[in-house]
Design a binder for these strands. Structure first.
Lengths: 146, 146
DNA sequence: GCTTGATCTGAAGCTAACTTGAGGTTGCAG
DNA sequence: CTGCAACCTCAAGTTAGCTTCAGATCAAGC
């Protein structure tokens, strides 16, 4: 530990691939924290590289920042998920992915029926029915994922 | 054909399940068109029920309105896709879904390796690497779908 | 001690896909 | 011909996840 553990935002940006503005945004959201120098500049812990790495991976898996925040704050106390934490989290992510794949597969099967009939009828089409209609959960395109 | 083929927006809303505001928005976007009564109220074609049904299905399959617009305007000339059109479109949608399932499956496999190692290392983690990182394609959460 | 690159803040902008609201008009049933 | 639901427009708001900008300050090498 001959080297200081505090890194400036630019370094964190380079190491994570995240834009500086994104990191600041994450800090506002509470996903990372920093201390300040006398001159009011942020200094992060080296371990925040991993922490933000986790954020990015979780994001790739389809989680929103709010969910990620929840996962992170649910951790016992450590700032950054350790191996055990990660295994626990990733196993639950796996379930997420699994059900997502299933949903897509079901949709594909319905689509196959649909190609056969070509009806496009709102009443009869298997692809389109009240029970599993994408019921607006926020903005942005609605994925088959629900 | 003893009944008028023109329906007001409220009826279209009820028949499609779409909010009136959404329909008006779609009209602004050019996804549907309407004629106006003397008193400036919209009248839609009955076939627009089907047209909007298509929009909803395509949306469920993950397409954005811009893409849907493209599909619709790419049609020979008819206002609303007919059976042949629909079959052509749905077959291409099927490919979309297929590749999406594949991507998810690949991700799941990577995640499985990851559960084993628990490294979370930005350099080594299979889940996290430069080549297939979600490279910002607009706003909103980035799905594994890329 | 100066210059230059890195950082700072806060507000505003962006995209997608809509919704909400205010304030006013239409159309049809009775 | 009256009343009321349905319709109209246009502007602004919403959510997510950031980016951009202006104007100012900091840190570090030479």
């Amino acid at each position: 530990m001959h080297r200081n553990d505090l890194i400036p935002i630019g370094t964190l940006s380079r190491r994570t691939g995240l834009a500086i503005s994104a990191i600041r945004y994450y800090e506002d959201r509470g996903l990372v924290t920093s201390v300040r120098t006398g001159g009011n500049q942020r200094r992060f812990l080296r371990s925040d590289i991993r922490r933000l790495g986790f954020v990015q991976i979780a994001q790739k898996l389809g989680l929103g920042l709010a969910e990620i925040e929840r996962e992170l704050t649910a951790l016992p106390q450590g700032r950054t998920p350790n191996i055990m934490d990660w295994q626990k989290i990733s196993r639950s992510l796996r379930k997420e992915i699994d059900s997502r794949i299933q949903l897509l597969t079901r949709t594909r099967n319905k689509l196959d029926e649909c190609i056969g009939c070509g009806c496009l009828s709102l009443d009869r089409c298997a692809l389109y029915n009240k029970e599993d209609r994408a019921s607006a959960a926020g903005p942005g395109p609605r994925f088959v994922l629900d």
